[in-house]
Design a binder for these strands. Sequence first.
DNA 1: ATTATTAATTGTAATGAATACAAAAATGGA
DNA 2: TCCATTTTTGTATTCATTACAATTAATAAT
Lengths: 140, 140
Amino acid sequence: MNTKMELLKKGLLKKGIRPTYIRLKVLDYLETNRNHPTAEAIYKSLVKEIPTISRTSVYNTLNFFHEKELINILFITGIEARFDSNISPHHHFLCGKCGRIIDLDIECNYFKKGNIRGHRIIELHGYFKGICKDCLKEGK
Amino acid sequence: MNTKMELLKKGLLKKGIRPTYIRLKVLDYLETNRNHPTAEAIYKSLVKEIPTISRTSVYNTLNFFHEKELINILFITGIEARFDSNISPHHHFLCGKCGRIIDLDIECNYFKKGNIRGHRIIELHGYFKGICKDCLKEGK
DNA sequence: ATTATTAATTGTAATGAATACAAAAATGGA
DNA sequence: TCCATTTTTGTATTCATTACAATTAATAAT
């Protein structure tokens, strides 16, 4: 009946991942909240519905998803990791005023090629820091 | 007599920064060790020569240098910050095997322009993760 | 089904990078 | 030399993340 959850389930099974309840809920959160949340934000949200869930499980699940190449981990703020279910190669913009991390659909030819100067590329991490369009407008 | 230190001193004075002993030593370390060291590595090295130096001073100095746009702070490993005295815009490569961070002299047209999609760019952070040329060769 | 085996989840404790803060020391100007 | 300001120090604290053992849940075999 719950089509969204069924789809997530099928997606995990196709990748050989057991679709446990927690995994489905974490994945659902990431798919729904595409604002690059922290592990804490994910925990805070899920614990409302699943009072027994532990922070460790959230971390475990996120790291597990990253190993299985289901999500990306962003180290941008220098404070805490951000999680991104969008695995198509793209760039990010961190606003120093509002703290938002904005997606940028920028191509990267080096990444496409898969190597650079003889080094084999596995992950691409391109981001800018600055003041976002909205904050510039509002003169924050 | 110590020409290198005199040059560093002049560089700091030109930027309106008081060339204290610790600042000179930290800057000297970064200029000499261009392997993107951690704050801990800098502290460990300097404490040999300056037994009274504190970790806090190293952190303070590094953050101060970053505010004054003398150095870049890299958040790549997800564990700890790395410091780079090379402020000319460039990319990095993190090897998952040996852990080295390798400089890549890649141009970025968005950064040159100073903005992207209406957002004002202040810092550029481009890096790849993968296996470096040497580790590929050695089949580590 | 029932049990045995494996995997996932939990809770607590520990780790470790980085910061807060107040005291002490050093610096530069009058 | 004295004073005001800045820098440095040392300790305590914060906070994200991991380690690990115990518990629970899920899967497979008989």
